[in-house]
Design a protein around this nucleic acid. Structure first.
Lengths: 193, 193
DNA sequence: CGATTCTTTGAAAACAGTCAATCTGTGTGG
DNA sequence: CCACACAGATTGACTGTTTTCAAAGAATCG
């Protein structure tokens, strides 16, 4: 089960076998069935989470019960609630599995120790965070500048794989439009090609 | 001129005087007049930028020349184009001064060396990046989940200082609505209180 | 299959955008 | 110091997009 994470890390940096052993020693394996929660509003999030296989969504619920999907995460990606992790406060968000999912959890404490012991791992984590930030800036741009159709076209261009795997209603939520609007937008843009 | 940065750092972590001297040695001071560019589309961004005094906006232009403001940055904050910094590609964004501004630039290369020499500085930078990411997630949430009025109320609640200093048309751009809509929203919400 | 969930469609209403005109405040040059 | 110009903000009428609500049509899963 550690294989995929090892492979992921080795594709980004070079560690010794001893380093890998240290990491493997603190890994917690977990399987989620479709629809199962990884994090529920009110829980405190304490992990770094690597996805071996599957697909998750990170979202919150507003007062009317509407789901607002902030991000998706799939195999070779990471997820978690950084706000709750940082502050130790209960999370205002939810994470659940869109598909059956396998993941590796490492507690914050263990992870911090690893990062101190293995500088290359620390650098890798910072690079990932940096990229996540850049991605989220581009998402902000799309959200404030694009029409419904532009948002959808931008999404399928940037994430064609997700466009295939994620139910439409969830894509709509991610884009900040209603499922009905997304359905109509798809119909229109199909007509054009 | 180094004072404000030193004070900022010392409020977040503890460094030796030698560390501060090392940092000061690579600082580049710069003043911008209102409306002056710090970064223009097409330039490659190579710095970390600390704002001593003033206010800047980070934005891009779409095909119709419409400005989309991704973020503001004020004294004791940081700005720059992380995408261009990471890839070395020309920036697709602009940064300019909303008020007369004083700032400190440190080139990426110098900054990377400092971070390697001063672990506490490296940790500080990661903490800042982490917080920026959390902030941008909350901005995504507002952008996809809120109405024009909710966006405005959320903004004045989270950034009352910016609400005072930033021209309304720029706030509108930041919120992803038109200046006219913002004006009407303000009128309505004034009526309610 | 049958039940449930997801998607599509239609019609009406709400919301935000556009365009043009007016108003306000600020700063500048005569 | 005044008059004027200019940029920013407001207002009104209109248009267009997106949402809402309700219903019907696919698709999926046990």
């Amino acid at each position: 089960m550690f294989g995929p994470l090892k492979q992921y890390i080795s594709s980004k940096t070079t560690l010794t076998e001893a380093d890998y052993a240290r990491i493997e020693a603190v890994c917690i394996y977990k399987k989620l069935r479709k629809r199962q929660y990884l994090l529920q509003e009110g829980d405190v999030w304490k992990y770094n989470c690597f996805i071996v296989k599957g697909l998750l969504r990170f979202y919150n619920l507003d007062d009317n019960g509407k789901e607002n999907i902030i991000s998706f995460a799939r195999e070779d990606g990471w997820t978690g609630d950084r706000a709750s992790l940082l502050t130790g406060e209960p999370s205002k968000n939810n994470i659940d599995a869109i598909e059956d999912t396998e993941l590796i959890l490492i507690t914050k404490n263990n992870f911090d120790v690893l990062c101190r012991e293995i500088p290359a791992l620390n650098d890798l984590v910072n690079a990932i965070l940096n990229k996540s930030f850049i991605t989220s800036q581009s998402r902000i741009h799309a959200a404030i500048a694009f029409t419904a159709e532009q948002k959808y076209l931008d999404f399928i261009q940037k994430s064609p794989d997700l466009a295939m795997r994620v139910p439409q209603a969830m894509i709509a939520s991610y884009l900040g439009i209603t499922p009905e609007t997304l359905s109509r937008v798809r119909k229109e843009s199909a007509k054009k090609h």
